[in-house]
């Protein structure tokens, strides 16, 4: 009478959640401080730290490109997974609808980020 057990696809989303959670835990606060506070308010860093030529060079570099992509995509997948589970937590079991809204936005963001990074070139 053992019920048939269906393999869960959760590992994909869980792995992305974990990777994004780790990346945002390590770099999130400083990234927010740099791009959101230090540069706009002229604190601590040279005013031209994120100037166009510098950011262009950074995102044309292979490692720089990878970092920017990882930050944007994994942050989105981390947040999507958490928000999806929080919706379930507060009693919104919209199933496919909620899943599509959460993971779908992360997917769209990932594609846009990849497209922008590719169009910046190497």
């Amino acid at each position: 009478m053992k019920p048939t057990l269906k393999r869960s696809n959760a590992p994909i989303f869980w792995a992305l959640f974990g990777a994004g959670g780790m990346l945002s835990a390590l770099f999130g606060p400083m990234l927010v401080f740099i791009t959101g506070l230090a540069i706009p308010l002229g604190l601590l860093l040279p005013a031209d730290a994120l100037s166009y030529p510098k950011m262009l060079a950074f995102t044309q570099n292979f490692i720089g490109k990878g970092f920017v992509f990882a930050v944007i995509a994994l942050f989105l997948w981390h947040a999507a997974h958490r928000i999806f589970h929080s919706l379930h937590d507060i009693g919104i079991h919209a199933g496919t609808g909620a899943k599509l809204a959460c993971y779908g936005s992360a997917m769209v963001g990932t594609v846009i980020a990849a497209y922008a990074l590719l169009s910046i070139g190497f």
């Binding site: 262009l56 920017v68 930050v71």
Partner: peptide, 30 residues
């Protein structure tokens, strides 16, 4: 602490807009 995800998502969205503006040239980035 689950709710911090909204800020992670919103910040990623801000960065994404920045990245798109960067790909559109100097004036857009500035």
């Amino acid at each position: 602490h689950e709710g911090t995800a909204f800020f992670v998502a919103a910040y990623a969205a801000v960065l994404l807009v920045g990245l798109v503006r960067l790909s559109q040239g100097e004036a857009a980035w500035n």
